[in-house]
Design a binder for these strands. Sequence first.
DNA 1: CTGAAAGCGCTAACAA
DNA 2: TTGTTAGCGCTTTCAG
Lengths: 346, 346
Amino acid sequence: MVAGTADRRDRPTMKDVAAVAGVSLKTVSRVVNGEAGVLPHTEAQVRQAIAELGFRRNDGARQLRTGRTAGIGLVVENVADPFYSLLTGAVEQVAREHGCLLFTGSSEDDPQREAELALAFCARRVDGLVIVPAASDHSYLGPELGSGLAVAFVDRPPIGLAVDTVLTANTQGAHDGVAHLLAHGHRRIGYLGDAERIYTSAERVRGYRDAMAAAGAPINESWISLGPPEPARIRSVIDQLLGAQPAVTALFTGNNRLTVTVLRELAARRWPPGSYRPALLGFDDFELADLLRPAVSVVAQDPAGLGRHAAELLFARLGGQRTPPRRITLPTRIIARGSGEAPPAS
Amino acid sequence: MVAGTADRRDRPTMKDVAAVAGVSLKTVSRVVNGEAGVLPHTEAQVRQAIAELGFRRNDGARQLRTGRTAGIGLVVENVADPFYSLLTGAVEQVAREHGCLLFTGSSEDDPQREAELALAFCARRVDGLVIVPAASDHSYLGPELGSGLAVAFVDRPPIGLAVDTVLTANTQGAHDGVAHLLAHGHRRIGYLGDAERIYTSAERVRGYRDAMAAAGAPINESWISLGPPEPARIRSVIDQLLGAQPAVTALFTGNNRLTVTVLRELAARRWPPGSYRPALLGFDDFELADLLRPAVSVVAQDPAGLGRHAAELLFARLGGQRTPPRRITLPTRIIARGSGEAPPAS
DNA sequence: CTGAAAGCGCTAACAA
DNA sequence: TTGTTAGCGCTTTCAG
């Protein structure tokens, strides 16, 4: 790992600029940082030297003195996932508005990697951290929090830590979605969700149960399937749900990946003429949902809003806000496009 | 912007650890960095003190001495775009394999923002930079390159700079796509591309022209429309292309956003019974293309491959490689799903 | 095997 | 208005 002859440190420093401009190092610092009290003539000399040498301030050294890095870190499950990339985009934008650079990292939903990433960001002395947690214990951040690190959690709440948090109204959203299906006449509704250990998943199943109970619709536990969105697994679940007597008449899917997997399995299925296709409602909106036939109805959440609010809470802290930790819950919105409004089999 | 009483610097240092452990600062450094030559007993004392204080090395200070930050920067057009988020995910993964953290930034296709971001990363003394360029002149990186900064360009080539570059076979891919349409009997093919100032766009139009010429198919300039994927604009272009006498029988779209916009406009159009719908082939694959009816045929490129190769070239440089700048061109692949294989109107 | 001293590039505090 | 000094937390070099 030797970088060869050219060293990353072979860059002009303020000392070099000072020598060329014939002034002191501190005067260069003043010019670079726009401090008042430098004669126009002197300043011009310094700027000339800066341009000549291609000088650029070493922010790492600066941070050593000032204690602020003007950088924040973001830990999501996977930056390549559309949900998280929208969230990331929003965090990045807020960071930029505050003159901050952004570190990003994917935890792959692994608690250990979440901690590694967060602590690596801390070793860089980021000013703040936005985290979509995978871990079930976040006390590892305790020491950092004690020394001024700002932290905001998104999408899932922290455990063992009292910090600002932004969540989606998962239970309410799932409740609304199931109520929507019930309102269209469905009574036997299958629920395909992610593993229950995932906070959002557990919350959403709860919404399903609540809505069913509130409507006096009995729940058959075999209608509920929680696990990863693996095609093979989904296929057999669908086989079972649709093959039962009586079969479910509607499916509720707990996130966008499950929705897509279910759509694909449904599309691959043989549908004898006149056979009934179940209604479908998915949690999370996704691109092109409107162009499918039938168009897919969803309970939409707001990934960019999650990111934006979290980043804004973070910068409020960095701006000196000292209120108790806040919790913001963003509402969901049902987008009816067709698949969720089909009546049950007669 | 005062952070209150708790200062980000109020963290234990090696000096603090040394005091608690009753050893010298240097011994702590040895333990933290896994250097050999520390008695097990001494090491145990140090580790104990580290755990007690919640010490974590300040990588910023370390970098000041070593000259390496173990960080790289990535500038894309927009992290929230699926194409770039896949690319970002791949870069992040390679960075992690090399023990590097990743800064990300979106240029929004603005040359000035690209430069601001890249130079801000440089001020942090990142070891390397992966850039999807928006600018038409990258000489601003000259000084940094001179002092050991590694740079790799992706998706579009640099101008005024000789550095490693990874591109998609844009011209060839568009050529293949148009040839595919021609092979299915189409002669009048509309081309909807992005603004021609964008490198990839210009390359792809060229592929279109080449393929048409190679097949002896005359080109009507009114079939070619280059500009942003605004729905209103696309609608009028489609009106014109399909309303002409004779009308085009197939559409080739120059990127995924255009493809989606076109799909939406086509879906919103009234199609009298028996009327002909044009064949459609899009550059870039996109999720759910297979579930639309008809399923959308595409010339697929490999966004993750672009990111991965670029990052690997970068780390090869950081590993000391001294060969002349390399250029890698990734092939495209036609995925026939139906929309691009429809025969022309009889 | 362990430690003392110097200094990375910058800013804070104080002098001149 | 400008300069000098000290020191941020670490690694490097050299001495014990």
